[in-house]
């Protein structure tokens, strides 16, 4: 599974359950949709750190990095390189 797919899968099964969404577009604004709130964000970050074996520094927890699946995938790639 690609980073993008695995993020989409986690969001749909763990964070956005109940909204009845079957897919998330790579550029869909997840903050605008209200899918990510503070508790959801905490869960998402620990999933990303575990699943991709990275550490996301607090400084990187900003809206620009969590706006959409594409933004998150970029963040993951960057942290993998580091």
């Amino acid at each position: 599974m690609s980073v993008l797919e695995s993020l989409e899968n986690y969001l749909l099964t763990e964070i956005a359950v109940g909204l009845g969404k079957k897919t998330l577009g790579p550029d869909e604004d997840l903050l605008e949709l209200g899918i990510i709130d503070s508790l959801g964000l905490m869960k998402l970050i620990s999933f990303m750190e575990e699943d991709f074996g990275i550490r996301i520094p607090d400084e990187e927890v900003i809206p620009e990095n969590f706006q959409s699946l594409n933004c998150m995938a970029k963040l993951v790639e960057l942290q993998v390189q580091n």
Binding site: L31, I36, S38, L41, E59, V61, P63
Partner: peptide
Amino acid sequence: EMLSTFPVK
């Protein structure tokens, strides 16, 4: 509203 989700912001 969104800022309380992002402590750095």
